[in-house]
């Protein structure tokens, strides 16, 4: 579960990067009454033993879909998104090592949780879905920070 797959990530720097672009990104979101990540209250109900799998799946969601589907022209926003995307790539590698040691098992609940995120994403036109998911990064970052705290001695 989680304790064995901790990502000693500096999520503070990621949250800073997101805060700098949050207003601009969320302003582009034209479907304010729809959510992709936030709809999954299930994120809050994820059990510690499923955190590694859900983290891995949601990192893949952002890396394989969201960041690819969003084309940004503003250099400042582009730099911040790149910073987050490359940090997620690094986190994936960290979790990859964990997975190879079979400590990142995916139970059905975890798989269902991330499937609903993909289903929400598919409901929208791709660029709208990407913008909305970028705007909800704070939900995912907060969840990572909460669930990936190193256990203090």
């Amino acid at each position: 579960g989680l304790r064995k797959c901790l990502i000693s990530m500096d999520t503070h720097h990621l949250e800073e990067s997101f805060q700098e672009i949050k207003r601009a990104i969320q302003a582009k979101d034209t479907f304010q009454n729809v959510t992709i990540l936030s709809a999954s209250e299930t994120l809050q109900s994820i059990k510690p033993s499923d955190v590694c799998c859900v983290t891995k799946n949601l990192l893949a969601f952002y890396v394989d879909r969201v960041f690819k589907d969003h084309r940004e022209l503003n250099p400042h926003i582009l730099r911040k998104i790149s910073s987050i995307a490359n940090s997620f790539l690094y986190m994936q590698k960290t979790l990859q090592r964990c997975q190879e040691q079979r400590r990142c098992h995916c139970r059905q609940e975890a798989t269902n949780a991330t499937r609903s995120v993909h289903e929400n994403y598919d409901q929208l036109e791709v660029h709208s879905a990407a913008v909305k998911s970028l705007g909800e990064l704070n939900v995912f970052l907060a969840w990572i920070a909460k669930n990936h705290q190193e256990i203090s001695a």
Partner: peptide
């Protein structure tokens, strides 16, 4: 270009 851009964009 970070590794992300090199791989995906």
């Amino acid at each position: 270009q970070g590794e992300y851009e090199r791989l995906y964009l």
